[in-house]
Amino acid sequence: MKGIKIIASVTFREGIRDRIYLIFFFFAIILLLFSLFLSMLVIGDPTKVIADFGMGVMSLLGILIVIFVGGPSFSKELQKRTVISVLSKPISREEFLVGKLFGIWSNVFVNLLAMAVLLFLLILAKGVMIWGIFVQAFLLFLEMGILTAVDLMFSSFTTSFLAMLFTLSFYVVVHLTTTIEKASQSLSSPISKAVVRYIAYLLPNFDYFNLKNQVVYGLNVPPLFYCKSFVYFLALIIFFTILAVWVFKKKEI
């Protein structure tokens, strides 16, 4: 556990001082402020526009941090052989990888929390309180944890660029699972319908972490949804972390 804590702390500090991280952070603030301007141009409730756009920005920034800050920091350690110095210490490969996961995830947490607070305040300035923003930020946080594990798995066996590409593709695909499932119903051939449906079942479904519409329109969410989301998150993060550890342990450093 000590090793995990040390690596997580080093990764967090390294990430938060990274120029790209800071650029993304300021970029996010500018985009959130831009939502104020956008709300004036669109017909409808301005707070809904700000909330909708703001949560989109949060998702975008989360994925950017995982892909452009987290993954490359791990690839760089492998490429520049920092990992050799670290693994000569009393730490196992498993602890090292899990430490990296927590470190990167903490970077995402800080970013999401800051953005959620800013978004909440922007909407509050319009006289409306949407606490659901924090719920959505938390679900995004869970989603980014899974994505970090996936990114670490890809970074363990391929180049930094390919790992970015694979993680991004994974992100796009898992957000299309419901669409793929729906699309299968319109297929005429029973075989293709079954195959597409089977694929949709096999793919992780990140809609479990998406409450944007419910938050924007103030819809009620059954408590069971949160339980399902959390169990789903646990299952996926454990699965992908074990996979990442397995790949990393096989890697010749």
Binding site: V10, R13, E14, K80, R81, T82, S85, S88
Partner: peptide, 10 residues
Amino acid sequence: PEAPYFYDYL
């Protein structure tokens, strides 16, 4: 290790 390299921002 040979040509050691550590964390840039630490």
